[in-house]
Amino acid sequence: MKKAIYISVILLFMISVMAFAKSKGKSNVFAKLYSDKSEISAGDEIILAVEFKINKHWHIYWENPGDAGMATILEFTLPEGFEAGKVLYPYPEKFKTEGLTSYGYKNKTVLFTKIKVPNNLKINSDYKIKVKALWLECKDVCIPGETELEMKFKAIAKSKTPKNNSFTNDFRKIPKSVSGLVSKIQILGQSAKIELKFPDYFEHSSLNFLIYPLNQAIFVHSQKPKITKDKSKFFIELDFDPFKVELPEKFEFVLVLDDKNAKIIDSKSIYFNVNSRN
């Protein structure tokens, strides 16, 4: 009960601060839209990137903001027949404020989305894609921010394959699925125990990682996960939030790897999921 009251007070304070801060019209976050190509052809896939530059000491939030905050969101307005995939978030950092733990980004981050181009393009026509970005920027106060961005793409008979994407390094921060990773989960009353068996091509002797839950309002974020190892298997125990409503059908996680294993898979982070009834 104390935790619920405490969080409610914090949220009410944040709302009052946001209403005051928004009236000033000053943002500490600046967003820019760019893409891996400016010309498109029928059936293409475009990679859109929204870059957020964040002023010093400020931060915005991951798709699971943690104990407090608001997920950074991208909303798309597309030409007829175009389809947007899910927003791809880089792995986050952890922030602790007044006993609350949240996940997000500082300095700079880039969110990505893949756009599927239809087959019935009109050659030499322009196609406009609009993106509305919404976020919550926090320091000592929290301010809701939003902006609308757009790009035009020229339809041609055959588009060129991008050679050197300017955002290659940023895209490497997107968690990737890896083959051979075996995961199980066991529900233990007020906690969950995850079993992970990494593929043989990993460097097991130096294997180290951080774990971030993607499911919102399920786990206690302020407590450090209990991680143990038995031969080639890792066991991770996470406590459930006592105020959770119900367990999801699928648990989703991101692992941030040590540098040696990140080099092996050419990615700093891994995405994996496990069914609650496995």
Results as ranks from 00 to 15, higher is better:
residue 3 K to F: 15
residue 3 K to W: 15
residue 4 A to T: 13
residue 7 I to E: 03
residue 8 S to Q: 03
residue 13 F to N: 14
residue 15 I to G: 00
residue 15 I to Y: 12
residue 18 M to L: 02
residue 19 A to F: 14
residue 20 F to Q: 13
residue 21 A to Q: 14
residue 27 S to G: 07
residue 27 S to I: 10
residue 29 V to I: 14
residue 30 F to E: 08
residue 30 F to T: 04
residue 36 D to N: 14
residue 41 S to Q: 11
residue 41 S to I: 05
residue 46 I to D: 00
residue 49 A to M: 11
residue 49 A to H: 03
residue 61 Y to C: 06
residue 70 M to R: 14
residue 76 F to G: 04
residue 77 T to A: 12
residue 78 L to V: 02
residue 78 L to R: 04
residue 79 P to W: 06
residue 83 E to P: 03
residue 91 Y to H: 15
residue 92 P to C: 08
residue 97 T to V: 13
residue 97 T to F: 11
residue 101 T to Y: 15
residue 104 G to H: 00
residue 106 K to T: 15
residue 107 N to V: 10
residue 115 I to T: 04
residue 121 L to W: 02
residue 127 Y to C: 11
residue 132 K to C: 00
residue 132 K to G: 02
residue 133 A to G: 07
residue 137 E to F: 06
residue 154 K to E: 05
residue 155 A to F: 06
residue 156 I to F: 04
residue 162 P to C: 05
residue 169 N to F: 03
residue 175 P to Y: 12
residue 178 V to S: 01
residue 180 G to C: 08
residue 180 G to L: 01
residue 184 K to D: 09
residue 190 Q to C: 05
residue 194 I to G: 11
residue 198 F to Y: 15
residue 202 F to S: 05
residue 204 H to C: 00
residue 205 S to I: 03
residue 210 L to R: 15
residue 210 L to H: 14
residue 210 L to K: 15
residue 211 I to Q: 03
residue 214 L to H: 00
residue 214 L to G: 08
residue 217 A to K: 13
residue 220 V to W: 01
residue 220 V to I: 14
residue 226 K to A: 07
residue 233 K to D: 06
residue 240 F to E: 04
residue 243 F to H: 04
residue 245 V to A: 12
residue 249 E to Q: 12
residue 254 V to N: 12
residue 255 L to Y: 10
residue 255 L to H: 04
residue 257 L to M: 11
residue 274 V to S: 07
residue 275 N to H: 10
residue 275 N to D: 15
residue 277 R to S: 12
